[in-house]
Design a protein around this nucleic acid. Structure first.
Lengths: 207, 207
DNA sequence: ACCTGAACACCGTTCAAGT
DNA sequence: ACCTGAACACCGTTCAAGT
């Protein structure tokens, strides 16, 4: 007993590990750990597989991070409810309250989707599946398509920025109090009102 | 000549390297390189110093990144002009057009200040030196202090979010066309108008 | 006090081989 | 076809020593 025996881990059966297991194990193991400390050998130990098995499915660390980002996007999309609310304003408010709730619920998801840790330039524009439905509902509520696109872009930029600031603590003022997100959301919606076609009585307040 | 002579680099004089040189050399050398490829030994070679010399001034890689972030913040602050414009609306518009211009001008600065590559949680809230002057000017223009704080927070979140999306390409729609930033900026300002004390004729349009 | 190369533990990735 | 430990080049950091 003077030398602890170095027991070789028994060899795993073929098919006992797969990309989905590796990605989900990575979420589990890397959660809360700064991205520069994510280690493939340590992940392999956590998963109880040889390092090389991970490299069989993901040829580089970057490929694994890419798969994690796609997984985070899929779970984000799965969590997004269909557009709901009466009129363009409620539709947009509810949509981005949902977006924010999903981003706030998971820091790791936020890091992968918003801060894009471990990837720039290559993933590019990502589609939000619920977007088509939202635009259809907005059109039905009387919002012209170009305005809907501007509004959507502005609100998504605001929401992502808010979550980023909350995540990194890089706010230029004291941290946002409760209701701060809603203030900005409502303010953007208020700014959109005079741009709607049926807002004639407020048209003169537009610069 | 069958064996290329490994000429030892001549020893540098004391005081020939300092933290400022290291940080500025790091900006030079790391620009355009993904953060996960930043290497201290390679930086040392670039600076023509021994690796250990860098570690004399920065005890860890993190400390060097922290110093780079502070340097980026200082150059950001130095580039920010004093608040300018007539009335609260122009003051805010000009301020955040300036912020955006400075962030857009330098991807590395944007990564350090907005995406916070290589640091979370520890740096915390950063002050923007021009902010005090802006708030003074807004007060003089008749904007109540609490409203000014909300407006500032909303606009800074929007501006950072816009720049982040531009940087990472994670926009949920086609990339923003020219004037897209201004649309959102003007929209937020438009939404603020009815909240000003002298906006009685529009008060009923506030929810 | 500051500068240095060699050394150490570890990481990403590949090799060469098991089954 | 998939799983494996050992090996390789490199990284962050420290050691022990020069001046």
């Amino acid at each position: 007993m003077s030398k602890p025996a170095k027991v070789a881990r028994p060899r795993r059966a073929r098919g006992s590990i797969n990309p989905a297991d590796i990605v989900s194990g990575a979420f589990d193991f890397f959660r809360g750990v700064p991205v520069d400390q994510w280690s493939i050998p340590q992940l392999a130990t956590h998963l109880d597989v040889g390092v090389t098995s991970i490299y069989w499915y993901f040829r580089t660390k970057r490929e694994l991070l890419q798969a994690m980002t796609e997984s985070a996007a899929a779970s984000f999309d799965a969590g997004m409810p269909a557009p709901h609310g009466d009129g363009w304003e409620e539709l947009l408010r509810n949509f981005f309250l949902d977006v924010r709730r999903l981003l706030a619920a998971d820091d790791l998801r936020c890091d992968l989707l918003i801060r894009r840790v471990g990837a720039v330039e290559d993933t590019g524009v990502r589609e939000w599946p619920r977007t088509q439905q939202l635009f259809a509902a907005l059109a039905e509520a009387g919002m012209p398509a170009p305005l809907a696109q501007h509004a959507f872009f502005t609100l998504s930029v605001y929401t992502q920025g808010f979550q980023l600031v909350q995540r990194t603590g890089s706010a230029p003022l004291n941290p946002a109090g409760p209701g701060e997100f809603e203030f900005g959301l409502n303010n953007i919606l208020r700014g959109l009102r005079p741009l709607l076609p049926d807002a004639e009585d407020q048209a003169d307040s537009v610069a």
